[in-house]
Structure formats: C-alpha cells, structure tokens
Design a protein around this nucleic acid. Sequence first.
DNA 1: TTCCGACAGTGGGGTCGCAAT
DNA 2: ATTGCGACCCCACTATCGGAA
Length: 509
Amino acid sequence: MLLIDLARTSAAVAADSARLAKIRHLAELLSRVAPDEAEIAVAYLSGELPQRQIGVGWRTLQDLPEPRQIASATLTHVDDLLSRIKAQAGPGSQAARKDLVEELFRAVTRQEQSFLLRLLGGELRQGALNGVMIEAVAKAAGTPAAEVRRALMLRGWLPAVGAAALTGGVEALRSFRLEVGRPVSPMLAQSAPNVKAALDRLGGEAVALEWKLDGVRVQAHRSGPEVKVFTRTLDDITAQVPELVEAVLALPVDDIVLDGEVIALRADGRPEPFQVTASRVSSKIDTATLRETTPLSVFFFDALRVGGQDLLELPDSERHAALVRAVPEELLTPRLVTADPEEGMAFFADVLRRGHEGVVVKSPGTLYAAGRRGAGWVKVKPRHTLDLVVLAAEWGHGRREGKLSNLHLGARDPESGDFVMLGKTFKGLTDELLTWQTERFLALADGPSDEWVVRVRPEIVVEVAFDGVQRSPRYPGGMALRFARVLRYRPDKRPEDADTVDSVRELLF
DNA sequence: TTCCGACAGTGGGGTCGCAAT
DNA sequence: ATTGCGACCCCACTATCGGAA
C-alpha cells in the first residue's frame, strides 16, 4: 500500500467531524491493507509509529526539502526508513537522523509530507486516535469492538492488536491474554472537586478510599526470579527502582502483577516534593548511590494477577482481598472502606495532614478497566486559588489558531511594584472567553511582542486554580504554579488587588 | 428529547540522557 | 561546561459526538 492512500484517508477523516464517518473512512482503508502492512497502517492512522520513538521532534522537522510530484512511497519503504532513523546513535547521529528525515521527505508528495509532519510531530489532528481506531479495526475486521478493546487491554499496543484482528479475526483477538512481563495499560481515575461529590458519583454506597501519593505509577511483574517494572506509558524502569524489585522478590507469591506508586519519603515518613521522586526514578546513572541518598518506597493498591490467577475481571473488592493476602501491610496503600461521608472526609483531611496529595475513591464492584479512565475510580485533591495579573498571551494552535490562548501569569511584588511571572495556563477557557480575551489583549498590547507572544499592559486580573507551588529553575521568582487553570476573569479587581509573591511563597516549602 | 460517557485536542512545569556547541 | 532536543514524569479542562435514558 502507498503512503498517499493513508494521507488521503487521514485528510478525509479530518474533514468529517462525525465520528461514525471517521470510522467508515478508516475501516475502508484497513479493509484493503495487506497483512504485512496492517500494523503500520493501524499505527500511522492512530498517530503512532511501529518504532514508538525514533528521536525526531519538532526541531528536526524544520527546513524540509521540496516534495516530489508523483506519489510512489510504500508503507514498507517508509517504515524501513523510520527504523534506520531510530537506529542512529552516538556522535554524528543528529546529523544522520536529519539526513534520513530529508531523504524521506524528498521521496514523498506535498500531501504525504503534511501527513508525515503531523505524524512525526506527534499531533495527527485528524480527530481520531485509539478510541476511534478501535471501532474502525472492529468494523474492518468484522469483529465486535468489545473484543478489540479486551485484546488491547491485555496487549497495550493497538497496532499489534489491530493487525491481529485484520489478519486473524476474532480468534486472533481472543488469543491475547495477560502475560507476566508484558505491561498492561494502567487504569486511570476521573476527578471530583471533593469527597462528597466523589461519593455521590459512586452511588452513595460503601466505597474504598485510598491515599493518593504524589509519586510515579508503577506496574510490577514477577515470574519466579524475574521482575520487571513499568510506568504508566509502559516504559521499562526496572533498572531505576532496585528497592521495588527487591520488595517484589521478597513476596511469598512468585507469579504476580501489581499496580502501585513509588515515592521518595523523607526520614520522618513525609513525602518529598514530586520533583525529587521524578528525578530519582528517571536517573539511570549510579542508582546504588541514589538509593542511599533518596530511597524509594512502594505502595501497592491493586493486583492484576496473583499466584497465576488473572484478576482483571474480578471486582475491586476481590482484587484487593487477593492483594492483601499476597502483600505485607507495609507495602499496601492505606485504605478505608466506608459509606459514611463524615468518615471519608476525616480520612481525606488526615491524608493531607500527612503531606500527601489526596485520595482515590473506588467503587467495590469496579472491574479493572485497563487503559481507560474508569468511572469506578475518582480522585480528589485540594485546590488553591489566586488572583493574578495577565502579563502576556500566546497565539494558539490547531482549533485555537487565530486566538490568543496561553496566558502568562504574574503575582504582584509589593517592593518593586512590578509583577513576577509564575507560569502560564491555557486551561479552563471556553471558546467565548478565547474570543473575548483575544480582542481585549490586542487592545491592551504593549511592549515587545513577537511572532508568538503578545505582551499586554498588566491590567487584567484573572482568578486561577492550581494544585501547588513548586521550585522553579526557570521563573524569576524561583517558583512556579503546578497545573494552573483559569477559573474566571475578575473585572471587579484591579492589578493592585492581585495576590503578592509573598503570599505565593507561603505555599512553597 | 435530553443527558452524559468517552474521546480528542490544547497545551502546562520539571527532569533526565545524549549530542552538539 | 553549557545548551538544545527528545522523551516522559506529573497533569486539567472544554467541545463534540452519539448512545443511553
């Protein structure tokens, strides 16, 4: 199959806003693809590469050569080139990758270039990724979507599942099973503003509340003496977390898959800031020294397999019972089962007093919905707010093209009378607000603006919600807001009424 | 007919390893 | 030694479609 076929399909998918139409376009193409190119086609059309990462980003994709006129590149040819790009390493590799990228772009037409640019840039922008592709694969293969979804849960990689469905049908899909040593996409949680809302959403019956730790999600697999540890995106971090490996090897069960969180704790048991845990987990050099200075603790909260038995399709209460049988108390995430909102709120308050992030509320009947934001898990975190001043705004991309989108936020410095930038946000803005702020900020434009950033006179006050303040090596005040989002503009407030850097600093430890 | 769950899109700060400067 | 890039850790929120109620 030719790349141009995919580029045309992608364009058709982007042109139709209806999901069912997108599915039709994708399924039509998938039904024509040869078995040996099925995985590539599913990957490309859902925004993935069979190679996963190839070391090419936005910078390498600048200044590309002119396209050719006649489309002739096959999927196999493109795939070979991408593999060669990924294989580059060592001195001279950046230039070599760039050369190969240019070779690739010289070999394709303008429409194919546009498709590849979005694919390699990681922003397909056709309104279809995994969710729509699951339906398209099911339609093209003539199998129920539920079978595709189930196989994806166990395999974690849609191109492989899609290729299996297209070539082997429902039988091939049913042959996927949980395999110890191969990661499953972890189940994710929805969020609620407070414990009461979370309980209401879960139907007001008895629920389990668990500590939400601000660390790194891990999935630990053990088969006999072999242990592997994976992150949320299924990357293997076994070598970076020896403490966890040892803890799993010490368990009395030797065929097990566990879900949990690793976190760096201080000597007094309180959590280190997220930055410390993240740094420790991503450091690959000299782990032996790091585990002395910054030891990691692990807390498990779910079990996907214990003693050779798969638990994914059992309710939370049964999975947790199996977890408790296999894992000693000190490795378990603290948990309370209750139907009483008062008790739940007290538990939440206690978690916060201990310095942790919040709670996850779980319905006892919930099955493990791998890779999905299941309705049975609801996280609750406290929220801070500040009144800040807009210092500048950046032009948006994609559906925000032509709108000023990303806001630069500043707190008042009472000493100098100036404003200290604390970060940016683009979240929480409705289309109406985007239109309004674009007009308003252009009228307030002031000072040196460039292609992307419009500086404005510091006159607009905006109420911003955020999760916390962290140390920043980037911003002048040495601190930045975590997960800032707009709540509302405050036309009733003047810049002099905005919160000060001192009040922000109080939230930093 | 209305409601709501799931999805895609639009980006945020911080840190690492590696290659280039 | 420092800088730039790619990748990945954490992530919130809105608009939209289409099936559920």
